[in-house]
Amino acid sequence: EVPFKVVAQFPYKSDYEDDLNFEKDQEIIVTSVEDAEWYFGEYQDSNGDVIEGIFPKSFVAVQG
């Protein structure tokens, strides 16, 4: 069931425009499960802007 919160276990950096880049310990709200390997989610950056994109499930852990 979406949405749910995950926390980055590792930093994720990608050159693909659709990917969500983040640092370790970033909290991310997952709004869609793309497939067995990928989530789609969002978070607010330090400027208060909402950043969204896809990212690999293996880089995050589900909270709770």
Score class of each variant (00 low, 15 high):
1 E>S: 12
1 E>M: 13
1 E>G: 14
1 E>F: 14
2 V>T: 10
2 V>S: 05
2 V>Q: 05
2 V>W: 05
3 P>I: 05
3 P>W: 07
3 P>K: 06
3 P>E: 02
3 P>N: 05
4 F>G: 00
4 F>R: 02
5 K>V: 12
5 K>D: 00
6 V>Q: 02
6 V>E: 01
6 V>R: 00
6 V>L: 02
7 V>K: 10
7 V>G: 02
7 V>W: 09
8 A>H: 02
8 A>G: 03
8 A>P: 01
8 A>M: 03
8 A>F: 04
8 A>K: 00
8 A>C: 06
9 Q>P: 02
9 Q>N: 07
9 Q>L: 15
9 Q>I: 15
9 Q>H: 08
10 F>V: 08
10 F>A: 10
10 F>E: 07
10 F>W: 12
11 P>G: 09
11 P>I: 06
11 P>F: 06
11 P>W: 06
12 Y>Q: 00
12 Y>W: 06
12 Y>H: 06
12 Y>G: 00
12 Y>R: 06
12 Y>A: 02
12 Y>P: 00
13 K>P: 00
13 K>Y: 13
13 K>H: 14
13 K>W: 11
14 S>Y: 02
14 S>K: 03
15 D>S: 12
15 D>P: 12
15 D>T: 12
15 D>N: 13
15 D>H: 11
16 Y>Q: 13
16 Y>S: 15
17 E>M: 11
17 E>Q: 12
17 E>G: 10
17 E>P: 15
18 D>K: 15
18 D>E: 13
18 D>I: 11
18 D>Y: 14
18 D>V: 11
19 D>T: 14
19 D>W: 07
19 D>P: 02
20 L>Y: 02
20 L>W: 03
21 N>E: 08
21 N>C: 12
21 N>T: 10
22 F>H: 01
22 F>R: 01
23 E>C: 10
23 E>Q: 07
23 E>I: 06
24 K>L: 07
24 K>Q: 08
24 K>V: 10
24 K>S: 06
24 K>D: 02
24 K>F: 05
25 D>A: 06
25 D>C: 15
25 D>K: 04
25 D>L: 06
26 Q>W: 04
26 Q>I: 05
26 Q>H: 03
26 Q>E: 04
27 E>A: 07
27 E>Y: 06
27 E>K: 04
28 I>L: 05
28 I>G: 01
28 I>N: 00
29 I>G: 01
29 I>N: 06
29 I>L: 14
30 V>H: 03
30 V>E: 00
30 V>A: 02
30 V>K: 01
30 V>M: 03
31 T>S: 05
31 T>Q: 06
31 T>I: 09
31 T>L: 10
31 T>Y: 07
32 S>G: 12
33 V>R: 06
33 V>L: 08
33 V>W: 07
33 V>Y: 08
34 E>M: 15
34 E>A: 14
35 D>A: 08
35 D>V: 06
35 D>Y: 08
35 D>Q: 07
36 A>M: 08
36 A>K: 09
36 A>Q: 10
36 A>G: 13
36 A>P: 12
37 E>F: 14
37 E>M: 11
37 E>V: 10
37 E>C: 15
37 E>W: 13
38 W>K: 07
38 W>C: 09
38 W>T: 10
39 Y>C: 05
39 Y>A: 01
39 Y>E: 00
39 Y>N: 00
40 F>S: 04
40 F>G: 04
40 F>Q: 05
40 F>C: 09
41 G>N: 01
41 G>Y: 03
42 E>F: 15
43 Y>Q: 00
43 Y>A: 02
43 Y>E: 00
43 Y>V: 03
43 Y>R: 03
43 Y>W: 05
44 Q>W: 07
44 Q>F: 10
44 Q>H: 10
45 D>G: 08
45 D>L: 13
45 D>H: 07
45 D>Q: 08
45 D>M: 10
46 S>Q: 12
46 S>W: 09
46 S>T: 11
46 S>R: 11
47 N>S: 09
47 N>C: 09
47 N>I: 06
47 N>F: 09
48 G>S: 03
48 G>F: 05
48 G>Q: 02
49 D>F: 13
49 D>A: 12
49 D>P: 02
49 D>W: 10
49 D>Y: 12
50 V>Y: 07
50 V>N: 07
50 V>M: 13
50 V>Q: 07
50 V>G: 03
51 I>Y: 13
51 I>R: 14
51 I>D: 01
51 I>K: 15
52 E>Q: 15
53 G>K: 00
53 G>S: 02
53 G>Q: 01
53 G>L: 04
53 G>A: 02
53 G>H: 02
54 I>V: 11
54 I>A: 11
54 I>G: 09
54 I>E: 04
55 F>C: 04
55 F>W: 02
55 F>T: 00
55 F>K: 00
56 P>E: 03
56 P>N: 04
56 P>V: 04
56 P>K: 03
56 P>Y: 06
56 P>L: 04
57 K>A: 12
57 K>C: 09
57 K>F: 09
57 K>D: 03
58 S>L: 07
59 F>Q: 05
59 F>M: 12
59 F>V: 11
59 F>N: 05
59 F>C: 15
60 V>D: 03
60 V>S: 02
60 V>C: 06
61 A>T: 14
61 A>N: 10
61 A>R: 13
62 V>L: 13
62 V>T: 10
62 V>Q: 10
62 V>H: 11
62 V>K: 11
63 Q>R: 10
63 Q>D: 09
64 G>W: 10
64 G>E: 11
64 G>M: 12
64 G>F: 10
64 G>V: 12
64 G>R: 08
